[in-house]
């Protein structure tokens, strides 16, 4: 599972793609953790190219959110589309995790 990252000012944007389900949730978790480790920048997880996420994937996002909170780093997700947006709405994760329509808004929101 590939997670690419880019800088938007001081914010670290991690781009997810494809699918996250029970079969690769652990791999997804390790990839995101590796991508955001070793610094103290705020993080935005961009899901524009993520086509599917299962509850196992949601749990990974929750654990990442908690870990970042523990490090006092801001965190948001953005650009949820199709089934991923639906899963966030039904599960109420849009109330648990800061969620934005666009990457720009998310970057602005998590910035110090």
């Amino acid at each position: 599972m590939e997670i690419t990252t880019e800088r938007k000012g001081e914010v670290l944007v991690a781009l997810t793609e494809d699918r996250v389900d029970g079969s690769n949730a652990r791999e997804f978790q390790e990839a995101v953790q590796a991508a955001i480790a070793g610094e103290d920048a705020p993080v935005v997880l961009d899901m524009e190219r993520l086509v599917y996420i299962s509850s196992a994937g949601l749990r990974v996002i929750l654990m990442i959110a908690r870990a970042l909170q523990g490090e006092s780093r801001n965190f948001a997700v953005c650009s949820l589309v199709g089934p991923v947006r639906e899963v966030f709405e039904i599960s109420g994760f849009d109330k648990i995790i800061q969620t934005h329509d666009t990457q720009e808004k998310a970057v602005a929101a998590v910035q110090g």
């Binding site: 509850s55 949601l58 929750l62 709405e89 039904i90 599960s91 109420g92 994760f93 109330k95 648990i96």
Partner: peptide, 11 residues
């Protein structure tokens, strides 16, 4: 319609 809840055990 949904009732606006969240998953249990987190919040």
């Amino acid at each position: 319609p949904l009732t606006g809840g969240v998953v249990l055990g987190i919040v």
